[in-house]
Design a protein around this nucleic acid. Structure first.
Length: 736
DNA sequence: CCATCCACGTTTTTT
DNA sequence: ACGTGGATGG
C-alpha cells in the first residue's frame, strides 16, 4: 500500500508532512486537518524516509487524543503503529520513570496520587502544620503547589523564590510537607511525573542521551496547552537531533488556569531561530459565515500569531442570536428548535450540541429535553476511575495485596464503617511511626496502639481480614480475587446501606461489573497479571472501557462545557448563556486583567468553530445565579460578531407581572429582582478620590469613574492588590 | 463515635 | 439552589 501524499493533502499540509528535519511549528487553525497532517507525517517518516517507527514519538494531552491518533496511524501504516510511541505526556513520563525510579530516590513500584489522594495529603498537612483552612483553602494550596511544579519549582527552589514573602511562607511550608508526605508513601502526583522526568534528564545526561537516541523524531499535539515543565521535557529530548515538530493553535489556548503557558507557542520561533513555520488556514469544517464570525471575534485579541481561516465551503446560514427572558425560556427555545428540526427530518439528535460555559447551566436543558422526550446525554467530567466505588474497591484490593501505602489504608480503614474515625487513625499512625511499621501493620496491634475495646476489636478484625484475603488470594485469577475481596470486606452491604435509592445501588453495581470485565480482559492479555500493574496501567492511561472513549454514537443531543467540546465538531451548535458575567464570567471581568478576557474570547472562538452547518447563540435577560435573580446583558462577544451575518430576531420583552423592564436596565449586572420588579439602580455614591471598601479586595482609592455603555466602570487603587478595574454595579463598593 | 444542622461558597479540567 | 464540610449535641 502506498499513499498518494500529493493527492490526499493540500499544499500546506503537504509542506508540513515533508518538513521532517529540524524544528517545525505547525500553526493549525480549527478544522484545518491537523490530525491528518500529523498522521500523514508519521506515515511519511516511516515509509518515505525509512525512519524506524520506534524512533518516532507523538505526545498528546488526553488519552482520547492518543488513542485516536494511534488508530489513524495504524490505518495508514499497517502494522508499524504499535511501535510508534503515541502517548500522553503523563503516560510517557510514567513509562520512563518506571525504568529509573531508583535514580530519583523512589522505589520502582511507586504509585501515582490522584486528586482524592492529593486532597487527603494536603488535609493532613494542614492539620499537622495547624494551618487555618479558612484563610488558606486546601484547593488554593494544592493549586499553588501544582502551578509551582508546572514551573519546575521544586520545594527548594520554591522556598528560595518566596523567601521574603510572609504569605507565601505558608505555601512554602505546605509544599515542603506535602512533598515529604508523598515521598514517604513512595507516591508521585501527576505534576511530579513531568517534573521528575525533567529532573532525571538534567541529573543523568547518559539517561537523557539514551532517550534522545531513541526518540529521534518528536511531535507534540495541542502545543498551545503545554506548561513550562512539559516544554522543558520536550526541549531536552529534542536537543540532540532537533527534529521537533509542534502542532497547535494559540487561538485555542484555553487552559491557562491550569498552568498552560501560551508563551511556549508564541515564542517558539525565538527559541528555535531556524524553525520552519507552516500555517494551516484552510478550514474544512464550517460554513464561511461561521468561520468569518470566528475570525472576527478572535481578531479582538492582541498578542496572537497572525492567521486567518478561510474555506471553500458554502456561505451557509446566518448566525442566529436570540435573547430570551429567562434561563428556562432559553432552554425551551433550544429544545423546541431541535425538536422541530428533527421532526422535519433536517437532522437527527446526534447532530446537535449544546455548549455551556459552566456545568450548572446544563440543568435547565436537561429538564427541557426530558419533558419533550428528547434523548440527550450530559458529557460530564466524572470519569470511571475517579468514581468513589471504583476507588474504594480498588483500594480494598490493593490493600489486601500490599499494605505499604498508608494513604490507601487510611482511605479504606473505615470502609465499611467500623468505627475507625480520625482519632483511631491518629493513634495507629503514631504507633506505626514509633515502631517503624506501616499503618496496616499497626492495625494488627490495635490494642497496643491504645485503642479502646470495641474499636480495637474492629480494627484488629480489619487487619486480619486483609491478611486472610492475602493468603487466600495467592495465585487466583484477578476476577475471583475481586469477588473474594468484596465478600470478605462486606463492601456490598455497605454500598447497599449507603445508596439513597435502589437505582443508585444498581448503578454502582454496574461499575463494579465493569471493573471486573476490565480485570478479566487485562488478565487475558498481560504476560504477568498483577493487580498493582493493572492499576498502574489504568490509573493514568484509562482502559479499553474508559468513559472518555466516544459514546457508541447513540442518537442523542449532547450537552457539554465549551472546554469539553474542544476537538469535536457538530453540524448544529448552540452556544447558550451568552451573557456578560457568565461568558465572559465575572471572575475574568473583575480581575481587570485583559489577559483573562482574552482567554474567554479564545474559548468563544473554540466554541464557534465547533459548528459545521449552523450556529445559534442565545442568552437570557434574567438568570438565577447562586440563588439570586440577576439581570444580564448580552455578552460582549455578541457585539464582536459582524452584524451583517447575524440573524437577530429580537423578541419583545415580556415580563412576569406585567412590569416592564426598560432597556436602559441592560448591563446593570448585579441588579437584583424581587417580585418581578427591579428594586435598585446602581448609581455610585462615591467619586474620584474617595476611599472605598470592596468585600474581597479590601480598601482602596477611586482613581477613575467612567460611565460606560452598560455600567459605571470604576478604577480603584487597592491598598493590597493595586489598580483594578471594576463594574460599579457588580463590585458593590462601599464609601468609607 | 455518629448523626444532624447550619454556614459557606460556587468557571473552566487533564492526567 | 444546592451540595459539601465543619461544628455541635446525643
Amino acid at each position: 500500500m502506498s499513499i498518494d501524499y500529493e493527492k490526499e493533502l493540500n499544499d500546506k499540509q503537504l509542506e508540513a508532512v515533508r518538513a521532517t528535519e529540524g524544528p517545525v511549528l505547525i500553526l493549525a487553525g480549527a478544522g484545518s486537518g491537523k490530525t491528518r497532517a500529523i498522521t500523514y507525517r508519521t506515515a511519511y517518516l516511516i515509509e518515505e524516509k525509512g525512519i524506524a517507527p520506534w524512533n518516532i514519538m507523538a505526545l498528546t494531552f488526553t488519552n482520547k487524543a492518543a488513542r485516536e491518533m494511534k488508530e489513524r496511524i495504524s490505518q495508514m501504516t499497517e502494522n508499524s503503529s504499535s511501535k510508534v510511541w503515541v502517548s500522553t505526556f503523563h503516560s510517557a513520563a510514567l513509562r520512563i520513570l518506571y525504568a529509573h525510579a531508583e535514580d530519583l530516590g523512589y522505589s520502582p513500584d511507586f504509585e501515582v496520587a490522584d486528586q482524592p489522594d492529593q486532597k487527603a495529603v494536603i488535609k493532613d498537612v494542614c492539620k499537622k502544620l495547624q494551618i487555618d483552612t479558612k484563610e488558606y483553602k486546601e484547593k488554593t494550596l494544592l493549586n499553588a503547589i501544582s502551578r509551582a511544579k508546572d514551573e519546575l519549582l521544586t520545594p527548594e527552589l520554591f522556598e528560595e523564590e518566596n523567601y521574603g514573602n510572609i504569605r507565601k511562607r505558608v505555601y512554602v511550608d505546605v509544599y515542603n510537607a506535602y512533598q515529604e508526605q508523598l515521598k514517604k508513601n513512595n507516591t508521585m502526583d501527576f505534576d511530579d511525573l513531568i517534573m521528575n522526568v525533567v529532573k532525571l534528564f538534567r541529573d543523568y545526561p547518559e539517561i537523557l542521551e539514551h532517550y534522545q537516541d531513541r526518540f529521534q523524531y518528536i511531535m507534540v499535539d495541542e502545543y498551545q496547552d503545554t506548561n513550562t515543565a512539559q516544554f522543558e521535557l520536550i526541549r531536552l529530548l529534542a536537543k540532540k537531533r532537533r527534529n521537533l515538530c509542534v502542532v497547535g493553535d494559540d487561538d485555542q489556548s484555553i487552559y491557562r488556569f491550569r498552568g498552560a503557558n501560551i508563551r511556549n507557542i508564541l515564542d517558539f520561533e525565538d527559541i528555535y531561530k531556524d524553525a520552519k513555520v507552516i500555517r494551516l488556514e484552510q478550514n474544512y469544517r464550517s460554513t464561511s459565515n461561521i468561520l468569518q464570525a470566528a475570525n472576527q471575534v478572535i481578531s479582538n485579541n492582541r498578542g496572537r500569531k497572525a492567521k486567518e481561516l478561510w474555506t471553500n465551503n458554502e456561505e451557509g446560514k446566518k448566525i442566529r442570536f436570540r435573547q430570551l427572558d429567562s434561563a428556562s425560556g432559553e432552554a425551551a427555545f433550544v429544545a423546541d428548535d431541535i425538536r422541530e428540526r428533527v421532526r422535519r427530518s433536517e437532522a437527527s439528535y446526534k447532530d446537535f450540541a449544546i455548549l455551556v460555559r459552566t456545568n450548572v447551566q446544563s440543568k435547565e436543558f436537561e429538564d427541557a429535553f426530558r419533558v419533550r422526550g428528547i434523548d440527550y446525554d450530559l458529557v460530564k467530567g466524572l470519569r470511571f476511575w475517579d468514581t468513589k466505588v471504583i476507588k474504594d474497591v480498588t483500594a480494598l484490593m490493593l490493600t489486601a495485596a500490599s499494605g505499604e501505602n498508608d494513604l490507601r489504608t487510611q482511605r479504606i480503614i473505615n470502609i465499611p464503617k467500623r468505627g475507625a474515625g480520625p482519632a483511631a487513625v491518629e493513634k495507629l499512625s503514631a504507633y506505626a511511626a514509633f515502631h517503624g511499621m506501616s499503618l496496616l501493620d499497626a492495625c494488627g496491634h490495635a490494642k497496643e496502639a491504645g485503642l479502646s475495646g470495641k474499636a480495637a476489636i474492629a480494627i484488629q478484625e480489619f487487619y486480619e481480614e486483609k491478611m486472610r484475603v492475602r493468603s487466600l488470594s495467592d495465585g487466583i485469577p484477578l476476577g475471583q480475587f475481586l469477588d473474594l475481596v468484596l465478600q470478605e470486606s462486606g463492601y456490598m452491604d455497605y454500598l447497599n446501606a449507603e445508596a439513597e435509592t435502589p437505582e443508585e445501588f444498581t448503578e454502582k453495581l454496574s461499575y463494579i461489573e465493569k471493573l471486573k470485565n476490565s480485570l478479566v480482559e487485562y488478565e487475558e492479555e498481560a504476560e504477568a497479571p498483577d493487580i498493582l500493574d493493572f492499576m498502574r496501567m489504568n490509573g493514568i492511561e484509562g482502559s479499553s472501557m474508559d468513559q472518555d472513549s466516544a459514546p457508541d454514537n447513540p442518537d442523542k443531543v449532547l450537552i457539554m462545557t465549551m472546554h469539553n467540546a474542544k476537538g469535536l465538531e457538530f453540524p448544529f451548535v448552540y452556544m447558550v448563556g451568552m451573557e456578560e458575567g457568565l461568558f465572559p464570567g465575572y471572575a475574568s471581568i473583575n480581575t481587570g486583567d485583559e489577559e483573562d478576557i482574552e482567554e474567554e474570547r479564545r474559548l468563544c472562538y473554540v466554541a464557534i468553530t465547533r459548528a459545521m452547518r449552523e450556529l445559534t447563540l442565545t442568552c437570557a435577560r434574567v438568570r438565577m445565579i447562586n440563588g439570586e435573580s440577576r439581570f444580564a446583558s448580552a455578552s460582549r462577544f455578541i457585539r464582536e460578531l459582524p452584524l451583517g451575518m447575524l440573524d437577530m430576531n429580537i423578541t419583545p420583552q415580556k415580563t412576569e407581572r406585567g412590569v416592564e423592564i426598560k432597556p436602559v436596565r441592560r448591563g446593570f449586572t448585579g441588579t437584583k429582582l424581587k417580585l418581578g420588579r427591579e428594586i435598585r439602580i446602581v448609581v455610585p455614591d462615591y467619586e474620584v478620590g474617595d476611599r472605598v471598601r470592596h468585600f474581597k479586595f479590601g480598601e482602596g482609592t477611586v482613581k477613575e469613574l467612567v460611565k460606560g455603555e452598560k455600567d459605571y466602570e470604576v478604577t480603584v487603587d487597592f491598598d493590597r492588590l493595586g489598580v483594578r478595574k471594576l463594574f460599579a454595579g457588580f463590585a458593590k463598593l462601599k464609601k468609607i
